[in-house]
Nucleic acid binder design. Structure first.
Lengths: 137, 137
DNA sequence: ATTAATTCTATAAAAATAGTAGAATTTAAA
DNA sequence: TTTAAATTCTACTATTTTTATAGAATTAAT
């Protein structure tokens, strides 16, 4: 399941993607438009900025705007940024790999092989969902 | 990500599935064999019993055994039992559907359509992973 | 200067997760 | 009939994660 943070991030990105290029949206505007608690959204937008999905303009008349193409922002990207691994266990993850503490032999682990297969399929599907593709429907 | 509970359940089922039919495994035996905290495993086995994946024999020389074919126990089943919905949001779930509290119009929600597509793909993949298929590799 | 915005750090409340404790019950066998 | 060894059941607890909120500092336009 997605955390609220990931859901809110996606909603905020969808909001920004529907504005004209050059338009700068205040946090308050996004919060109202996408039904997100404003103070929570502040943190999320900062994270999206640090990860270079959005840019910001400070001071009066400042706000946020997309800097990455809506075709290049995928569900997988946002999931990884806020919720971490796509895989069902860290030992089956590409970007968040960690061995299991209770694992005797990873190469012989019956579970891991199946979870790697799942991760490959889920990742492909999640990389196919972009902010642009979500808007189109 | 899978909770420890789901991971332990899968490991316990794999342990049971590799025993001969008729064999009854004590909780302690499964805990040791699959590196699972014994008291935690007790709860998990009870849940698996209530969901009719395993049977139990009480009293001395009692224990647990599979009652469902290892070909008919899928990753999707165990995920749903312990971790709930396969879908990324409740509004995109088949078995755990709930509307979003912050949703204005579900049919117009850009996010939901994408998440339903992801759920369909993930579910198909997870239904393809069975206890039997995990053992084979 | 004033206003209105982002930015930053810290804190807090609530929920979920992971695990433990201990008594009650059941069954087999001595 | 007693004992031993197992499941079953209820409750509790500690930790971590999630979901925010508070408030001061900084930035920039007017």
């Amino acid at each position: 399941m997605l955390s609220h943070k990931t859901k809110y991030a996606l909603k905020a990105l969808l909001f920004l993607a529907e504005k004209d290029t050059g338009y700068i949206a205040r946090t308050m505007e996004i919060a109202d438009g996408a039904s997100i608690p404003k103070k929570f959204l502040e943190q999320i937008l900062l994270d999206l900025k640090r990860a270079h999905f959005v840019g910001s303009k400070q001071g009066k008349f400042g706000g946020y705007y997309l800097i990455k193409s809506k075709n290049d922002i995928t569900l997988a990207d946002i999931h990884r940024l806020f919720d971490g691994a796509i895989a069902l266990l860290p030992c089956a993850s590409l970007n968040f790999y960690e061995p299991c503490s209770d694992c005797v032999s990873e190469t012989e682990c019956a579970l891991r092989h199946g979870l790697v297969a799942i991760r490959e399929e889920t990742l492909k599907a999640m990389q196919g969902i972009t902010i642009a593709s979500l808007i189109k429907k």
